[in-house]
Simulated assay, not measured.
Amino acid sequence: MKKKALVALYQYNQVASSSRIVWAKLGYSRLLKLKDSSVYVPTWIFAVRGKNSSNITLHRINAFTGSSMKNGSTASDTSSLDATVGMMWNAID
């Protein structure tokens, strides 16, 4: 499953060929926000570092459909990213 998600990441042109995948985790991401609750979906989360950059970008692939999910998280080290999304995959590891 992780391999298919990684292939999808490249198919959606979210990762340059010179980039490095730092880690990949299975977690949950919010799919819908309703008035009093939210709907979450299993998601493959990839941390990607560019060839000439120390920044790490998170990319998410829906584990059910294989579609790319909107993303906006970047950081200069993985520890701050772990704090940002850490709770999403702790129950799955």
Rank of each mutant, 00 (worst) to 15 (best):
M69G: 01
G66V: 00
V22M: 07
N13A: 08
V15D: 10
S18Q: 15
Y28R: 12
I61M: 01
G27I: 02
L31M: 12
D36Q: 07
Y28A: 08
M69A: 02
L34F: 04
D36Y: 09
A63L: 08
F46T: 00
Y10D: 05
K33C: 06
S68L: 12
M69K: 09
S38Y: 13
F64R: 09
T65K: 04
K25Y: 10
R20M: 14
L26K: 02
K35M: 11
A47R: 03
F64I: 15
V22C: 00
S67W: 00
V48K: 01
I21C: 09
S29R: 00
R60D: 06
K25V: 13
V41Q: 14
Y28M: 07
F46S: 01
S17P: 10
K35V: 13
T57E: 10
V48L: 06
F46C: 05
T57R: 11
K25F: 13
S18D: 15
I61Y: 00
L58F: 01
N55E: 14
Y12P: 10
N62W: 02
V15W: 05
G66R: 02
K51L: 11
V22P: 00
P42N: 06
N13M: 08
Y12R: 15
Y12L: 09
Y10T: 03
I21G: 04
N55G: 09
H59L: 01
F46L: 00
R20D: 14
S54G: 11
S29V: 04
S54H: 12
S53Y: 08
V41W: 04
K25T: 07
Y40C: 08
H59D: 07
R20E: 15
I61C: 00
L34D: 06
S17A: 07
G27R: 04
R49N: 10
I21V: 10
P42K: 04
S29M: 05
L34R: 10
H59I: 05
N62K: 04
W44I: 02
N55M: 13
I61K: 00
L34W: 11
Y12A: 08
L26H: 02
V41N: 12
T57Y: 08
A47I: 09
L31D: 13
R49T: 05
V39N: 11
R30L: 12
A16I: 07
I45C: 05
V41L: 10
S19W: 03
I21F: 04
S53V: 00
K70A: 08
K51E: 11
S38N: 13
F64P: 06
K35T: 09
G27Y: 05
N62Y: 03
R20P: 12
S18W: 06
V39D: 12
R30S: 11
N71V: 05
Q11M: 06
R30A: 14
L34P: 03
L34K: 09
L9S: 03
V15N: 05
Y12D: 09
N55D: 15
L9T: 04
V22K: 05
I21Y: 01
R20Q: 15
G66P: 03
K51S: 15
A63R: 03
Y28K: 11
P42E: 03
